[in-house]
Amino acid sequence: MTFVLTNLVPGDPATANLGEQASSDPAAVAEYRRQHGLDQPLPIQYARYLEDLARGDLGQSQQSHQPVLTDLRAAVPATMELAALAILLSLLVGVASGVVSALHRNRLGDHVLRVLSLLFVSMPTFWLALVAFYVFFDQLGWAAGSGRLDPGVTAPANVTGLYTVDAVLAGQWFTFWNAVSHLILPALVLTAHTVGLLTRFTRSAVLEVLSQDYVRSARAKGLPERTVLVHYVLRGALVPVITVAGLAFGALLSGTVLVESIFAWPGLGGYAFRSATTFDLPAVMGVGLVIGTIYLFVNLAVDVLYGVIDPRARVQ
């Protein structure tokens, strides 16, 4: 799939990578194509690609001149650190404000939250990233600059690749706080869209559940309102919220492409952006494969959670 898509893109990796002078020399182009196997018919290229893939070889990046796998090993944890923090923040804030919004239906708090969530959902992430970077770093100086650490701060010993976790494992608290300060702004920018999404969906899910007979029955049993809310209403609203959270995670990953480029975050999104603009096909295919796998696992996790939450979804 990723192979077909990347090869369908009109554009020639040879001309993109050789530089202006070399690409006007037919001999150099032919040599480049031969080296990278691009002179072979597509089915053969594909067979070679699969053969390499089976050995765990994703090819060599034409930009970094390193195996794509090595590049990805460095990029994936950087993105996961960012995306995990962003989805966590989104869930905390989005679900809470969705519940508050539903409980205050058509009152002031609800209106404010609805306008805010609409604003967050519709703001383009790249624009928000630029504005946030300009305001909080350039003007106010509140946020740390680009990258994962300040220049001069060395990365902690690689265990998980997540700098915050690795720093804690190594007991380097200064590095930990530095990594956190670098994480916050891009994570908040990524959070904006998903928070808006989760607020809106949680609100409608809770309103839906509040009108259910089983909530009225719970009240008829004389249970305190807090018990009704936590055990009956939230439990019932969880399935749609989890579904949206899974989708939101996908949206969040695609948001990293631009956010990482703007914040010079050495992650998957920035890597995808660079390799796509330079026709670095092995790298693009590698990214596609990784993103596809992440999607697969997120969906699997969502399905497993369905079974945990809703007994009717369990396989007998």
């Binding site: 007979d213 089983y214 009225r216 029955s217 719970a218 008829a220 049993k221 004389g222 249970l223 019932g236």
Partner: peptide, 24 residues
């Protein structure tokens, strides 16, 4: 009222398929 409801007076509703929480 919360102390009376379910304790001194309680209610059985019309549709048993919707008045029990499906996930509890």
């Amino acid at each position: 009222l919360g102390a009376v409801r379910g304790r001194v007076v309680s209610m059985v509703f019309q549709d048993p398929s919707t008045c029990l929480h499906p996930m509890l």
